[in-house]
Amino acid sequence: MTVLAAARNPIIRWEWLVDEWDQIRSALVEHLTLTVLSMGLGILLSALLAAVAIRYRWALTPITATTGLIYTLPSVAMFALLAPIFGNLARPTAVIPLAGYTLLILVTNTVAGFRSVPRAVRDAAEGMGLSPFRRIVTVELPLALPYIITGIRIASVSTVGLVTVAAIIGQGGLGSLIFSGLRRAFWTPMTVGASLSIIVALAVDALIYLIGALLTPWTRRAAH
């Protein structure tokens, strides 16, 4: 692997991008699909867990410990474990672990968000005659939103990164580009896959940040 290799095998060969655009695009789509599905499941589960942790204060520690434990489970191990159960190419094999990894940060941030609502605001809302539903949905939730959105941002970005690892079971989106390149010792798809996954991660981060800013106009006004 010396000069000859370098001549045949640059870090990135641009024509490949043009030729294999369909492959790139389908990998991208799969990558985003997996991300969205995992985030969706993660948000749903974390909302439930957060609701429990808020309602029953003692539940926060065990919930945090459990989601924390799940978070430390090596991703390779998780994909490998579920593959024989659901099948390598089945969605649950990838989505379940990916969703699991989001739980810790989502639950932590959601709970923190609701805890950050000033007691006076809650007291005033109750005293004014807001029903519990109205209070939670129209007052506490918007005020918890900054924390929740930060959690979603962090979870989304790390999910984008982890989806690439799911390539080991054949569901990697952009990760599959990396692997196909590796197998053939052909660097371009590797570079493209890797770079794109970083770019997508940053783009998702920026996008969610913008959405968050739009949803919370009051946080942008200068304080008196």
Binding site: R153, I154, V157, S158, V160, G161, L162, T164, V165, L174, G175, I178, G193, A194, S195, S197, I198, A201, L202, D205
Partner: peptide
């Protein structure tokens, strides 16, 4: 920091 996909790097 969160946007560091180790595998990709």
């Amino acid at each position: 920091s969160r946007a560091v996909p180790t595998f990709a790097i």
